[in-house]
Design a protein around this nucleic acid. Structure first.
Lengths: 380, 380
DNA sequence: AGTCCATGGGAAATCGATTGCTCACACACA
DNA sequence: TGTGTGTGAGCAATCGATTTCCCATGGACT
């Protein structure tokens, strides 16, 4: 193959000879000893293809990108040459020239949270089907790290960004906007609402959970809340209060304990609630990891679920039905959240313009034994 | 700032004026209406910095990369200019020129498996501390998708690759090698062993699990095995058999049922075992997700754990202690696996050369109630 | 038959950085 | 004072693609 390439150097198409001389030198270096830092495996460049097909690089580019009409005969020659050389265009060079790429950045706040990873699956499936690759960035709810990654997204010419914002106000999308990189926020609301977003009806989900507990006969319902600094935390807490109000249950400040959406904080918050002089007879926990922690705290006591304390957690998980008793949850359509997010981003990438859109998906209550008091439940 | 920049266009340092004229035109386009495809926000280029600092771009580059000595006076001027313009070098241009980048690709086989996500946390922490970014690729055990991502890694000039191979033989590292991109494989063994790798002592872990079941009094121990096509599956099965042999337990073919490491297959495999004429009195399940499935299958029967059936699962999980009864597991040091993998890769990136190295970490048995038969256990 | 226009392809500029080569300048030494 | 040497900075080539601009060709129309 290398030989055939060289024989074509003398074709009537005159390309920069200096350049091809240099390229041949490179090949030699590669063949003999490997240089200190590895040469790319993109063995063939567009110039090699052009030479072999006896056309200009411009024509090769046109064939590849199909923007302009090209003589079918030439196009065929080019395609044959591409196959012959096993040529793949350099994404880096293309990105430098066009200032675009086909990589999407997904900036999430906790890679260990199954909610986000399931969501990423949804994003990935849609993106992969449209030939986009994903870069997953774990900002860990750290605004500085988030900012780093947003900067990286611009610097690397990312085609688009999916962002679960660390805070409603601390996130600065200006540089993305300036660079013309489309963004879709997901899961958490941003103060700035001229941005595409996919959200869950967190208030509704929390209301449902509390109402369910009420219907199950619980009357002193506590809450392990997330941080009110992020919209999911604030909304779920608001929903909890709304649920209490709907049934004229007292809204006792003491009954709300705050965590940070991680497991340990759930344990601590639950312990605080259990230590109250007049502890709750049921709790609504605002996310999956804190629910784990809360269950840990309960397990350390002699309390039994649901007889001594009922529990409903936000976010469904594969293992929720396996707990004894099985755990009642407010499940989010995580995969669909991701898929919908990806679709929104793709629509921007294919030219849609307009003001920020909002898609709100509904959570679903999975009633299991952790919240159903048969004794209190019976209407009799 | 834009104005100040322009006043310096007439400095004695003559840069391509055509070029700067063109740049000014770009700015205009950006300021008025946004062009069809967004211009990058890298508002300043190295040429702008050079102009402002009244030096050549070569000098600016040298100041940034610090390879060569530069007159402190000029270096200061450059640094001031960089700050003034808020200049960040274009990663894409740099990558094109140097054929390197500071992004690592992490190719895993299942993003929903907590094992991999925890591992990624370990990789990420180490990588982030050394100013590398991560691209997470989800190959889903699909060799074609894996190959796609490996190609992408080369094409995007990734600095290095972490790979959990989909199969011992189907993975082709040739193009990475040709491109000089260092790889570390993790979790699964590759037939080719001239590659850095971080592994778990899967055989030892499985032996420990079986021996523990034996000591607990179980005598007919079954296995829900992973696919033997991947080393983790084969090794854990081998360890199971080794454990049986150590105690002269019969190695009954029927007692092994195979799954694919996903949840549903665990359910099915467990159902098969339970349907045997002479079903096992305990099972060793070869990974976390299949354990979930197996527990599901057990829950659908009237069998009680551990009295009717004992169970030990490979991979510890946050919720394992919360199950009733709590689940005995063979826990892997997932985070450390990731951290160690990242360190190995970084050592290659900082110039280490030599044959493939192997690091094997040890799993740890977490004894909980799902495998401890108090009745049979008592030595009396 | 001559002119015009449409069309397609080639040459070269360009994206924004790095780096080999060259040259100027300064200093030391005879 | 003339020559040798070393150091640092600038010019320009280069990475590999895309895209603008221009020219040549061929067909249609007068």
């Amino acid at each position: 193959m290398g030989n055939r390439l060289l024989t074509h150097n003398h074709s009537f198409v005159s390309l920069s000879t200096q350049r091809s001389r240099r390229r041949r030198a490179d090949r030699g270096a590669l063949a003999s000893g490997r240089p200190a830092w590895g040469y790319s495996a993109c063995v063939a460049t567009i110039a090699d293809v052009a030479r072999l097909a006896q056309v200009s690089t411009a024509t090769v580019s046109r064939v590849i990108n199909g923007n302009t009409e090209v003589d079918p005969v030439l196009a065929d020659r080019v395609r044959v040459a591409i196959a012959e050389l096993n040529y793949r265009p350099s994404r880096v060079a293309r990105s430098l020239r066009t200032r675009r790429s086909s990589v999407l950045a997904v900036i999430i706040s906790d890679i260990r949270n199954p909610f986000f990873t399931d969501m990423v699956r949804g994003i990935e499936d849609v993106a992969y089907a449209h030939n986009y690759s994903l870069v997953l960035c774990n900002a860990e709810d750290d605004p500085a790290k988030e900012a780093d990654y947003l900067t990286l997204a611009v610097d690397e010419h990312m085609a688009g960004v999916v962002l679960a914002p660390a805070s409603p106000t601390g996130t600065d999308l200006k540089s993305l906007r300036a660079a013309g990189v489309p963004v879709v926020t997901v899961d958490r609301r941003l103060a700035d609402d001229d941005v595409d977003r996919v959200l869950i009806d967190n208030i509704g989900g929390a209301v449902t959970a509390v109402e369910h507990l009420w219907h199950s006969g619980f009357r002193r319902i506590g809450c392990v809340s997330g941080p009110v600094g992020v919209s999911t935390g604030a909304d779920r807490l608001a929903g909890y209060r709304q649920g209490l109000a709907a049934h004229q249950l007292p809204d006792d400040e003491q009954l709300v304990s705050f965590g940070d959406f991680h497991e340990e904080s759930g344990t601590r918050a639950m312990q605080e609630l259990l230590a109250l002089p007049d502890p709750p007879d049921a709790v609504f926990v605002a996310n999956n990891l804190m629910t784990l922690g809360a269950l840990d705290a309960i397990a350390a006591t002699s309390l039994r679920v649901p007889d001594d304390i009922g529990i409903v957690g936000f976010d469904d998980m594969a293992w929720a039905p396996l707990l004894r008793p099985p755990l009642t949850t407010v499940g989010q359509p995580t995969y669909d959240v991701g898929a919908e997010t990806a679709r929104m981003l793709l629509s921007r990438l294919t030219g849609y313009v307009g003001p920020g859109r909002e898609v709100v998906l509904s959570p679903q209550l999975f009633v299991r034994a952790s919240s159903t008091l048969s004794a209190r439940w019976s209407p009799a």
